[in-house]
Simulated assay, not measured.
Amino acid sequence: MPVSQSSLRGVVIAFIAYAVFAFSDASVKLIDGAIPAYQVAFAGAVFGLVILPLIKAREDSWLDIVRTSNRTLWLLRFACGAIGSIASIITFTKLPMAEAFCLLFLLPSFVTILSVIFLKEDVRWQRWTAVIVGFIGVLIVLRPGFRELSVGHLAGAIGGLSAAIAIVILRGMGPTEKRMSLYGAGLLGVLVVSGLLMLSNIAIPTPMQWVFIASYGILGSAGNALLMTAARMAPANLVAPPQYSQMIWAILFGYFIFDDTIDLPMAGGIALIVFSGLLTLMRERKRGTPLPSAVVSPDAQASLATAEPEPDTRG
């Protein structure tokens, strides 16, 4: 198959994958906080186990899920998986979908900042400009001092930061770390932490809530599978940008299902945030570094679908 045709199919599949993620996020919002976030996260992680056979290479062992060359970073990714998953669920529960994505789309900016601090990456003025534009966009959307901020806004920032830390860990652990280990760290983090939290309080879902929980988990796993398929057909720099199509779904869901409204300042802020993210991805492409992919997914592992650990390329 010609490369161009394969890449086009990969991009189309990526758009479908991000649409599936958006439907999964809408399922969380439809639960409307009636079920604790950690219980929903646990269900999503259980469905995430379905993806393991797709990640496992022939030479891999199932024990590679817990094996690692750097236990400290593995445990940090373990913690980020749990925190990011629970925080993102709280974000979509408490905030309008478009506003939730605005905060979670700060992921590329967080990655840039953390890469400078911990990986000592050489970041030029173009990437710093993208970071500043992104934060200006968030300030326009949130308008602190003019609007009351909630726990949902805090959770959104924590979710984006946790995902960014996971991406930086992915880069820092290098090309020798197996995908089974990287995926297993985040997935086990959600299962263990959410499972422990569930011991103190387990809510019994209604039949309709079971449908939404199942939709969240099944669609999230399907989105990850589609994203990995897209990554095998097209390079990461083509698969990553379609993530911003999630904002279109968020606006549509918000308008037709959740009665959300978007005023002119918020629309402008959204545009700046999307521009910031795309500018960052363009700079990452030129530098040849692994790209962050899906901003949010039930198991917080979609970044593994399009970002293989690679040696850092400075410049």
Rank of each mutant, 00 (worst) to 15 (best):
S215D: 08
S303I: 13
M198K: 12
L238I: 06
L291W: 06
A87D: 10
L252H: 08
P36V: 02
S181M: 04
L279S: 08
V151W: 10
F92D: 03
A157C: 13
N237K: 09
L272Q: 11
R77P: 03
Q301E: 11
V274N: 06
T206W: 10
E99L: 06
F146R: 15
L154R: 06
F47E: 03
L95H: 11
A45I: 04
S69M: 01
V50N: 02
S181L: 08
T206I: 01
I16K: 06
S109V: 02
Q5P: 03
R143I: 02
I204S: 14
G184W: 01
L54C: 07
S27H: 11
A300N: 13
G195K: 13
L76S: 07
A82L: 02
S4K: 14
I86V: 15
L73K: 15
A34V: 13
G134W: 02
I35V: 15
R171H: 05
P242C: 05
P108M: 08
R179K: 12
A87T: 14
C80D: 04
I16L: 15
P265Q: 13
L103M: 12
A164I: 00
F258W: 13
P265L: 05
N237H: 14
A98W: 09
T72A: 15
P2N: 15
I31G: 02
G277L: 07
M173C: 09
M198E: 00
M97K: 10
F118H: 07
S61Q: 08
W249E: 05
L188I: 11
C102E: 08
D299I: 15
F23K: 10
L278I: 13
A214K: 04
I35W: 02
G172W: 10
G315Q: 05
P2G: 14
D122G: 04
P36C: 06
F253C: 13
D312F: 12
R9P: 04
P205C: 07
W128P: 04
A155F: 08
I273N: 05
Y216H: 03
A130R: 05
A26F: 05
A302G: 12
V192E: 05
Y183D: 06
M233A: 09
F15E: 02
V138K: 06
G81Q: 09
R179F: 06
S88A: 14
G156D: 01
G160P: 08
S27R: 07
T112V: 14
G84I: 10
V111K: 03
